[in-house]
Amino acid sequence: MDYDFNFAVIWRNWDLLASGLGLGLFLAVVSIAIGCVIGLVAAFGMLSKHRVLRWLSLSYVSAIRNTPILVLILFTYFALPQLGVALEKIPSFILTLSLYAGAYLSEVFRAGLVAQPKGLREAGLAIGLTELKIRAYIIVPVMLRNVLPSLSNNFISLFKDTSLAAAIAVPDLTFYARKINVESFRVIETWMVASLIYVATCYAIAAVLRRLERRLAIPR
């Protein structure tokens, strides 16, 4: 193969790529934060003794998990406005990604809650705590620390999924890569660099999260 690599056009546009990367990280962080809240509510819903709550949570989780995320993104952005809920691109994407994250995290949280020994709750009851306080101070903090590794994996997946935001023209890394590609015709260079940026970022996130996991883990 005798191809002349030329990265000049890409270096010239590094600021676009950087801002796209920054936006992707921002989207992932906001979505996982909201997704954690949704996931917790859904996890408790799935374990609730009230049938309606169980049914609602399970429906939400299975609906989201059985729909391709690209379809969810397009639905929220293009179909919801027809139903009277019009959102800007970025809020629309955050809504989708949060709901998506919430569905997957609810499974992680549910498993974490089920795995907890019931003695913890009883010890909380025995010192006069109400169910709500037991959840707030004991059950949820212990569960979150136990599921940190799954949480990290979910975050990395979610960060990669932000590349789908380009489908509704959210200016993330993939969006700018495509723009540079179209304008420069440096197909190989553009997508090579974009891939490498994703790989390096995922590595960096993983390293940071592993340190965080160690810091937050329950000491033994």
């Binding site: 020994p117 003695g119 913890l120 009883e122 010890a123 909380g124 009851l125 025995a126 010192i127 006069g128 705590l129 109400t130 101070y137 004991i138 903090p141 212990v142 620390r145 329950i218």
Partner: peptide, 22 residues
């Protein structure tokens, strides 16, 4: 709420300790 208040009138030590691990 009332049950919780009454529970606090007694203290319980369990076979498995059940300390809060975090």
């Amino acid at each position: 709420r009332q049950i919780a208040r009454q529970r606090a009138m007694t203290g319980m030590a369990f076979q498995q300790f059940n300390l809060f691990p975090h």
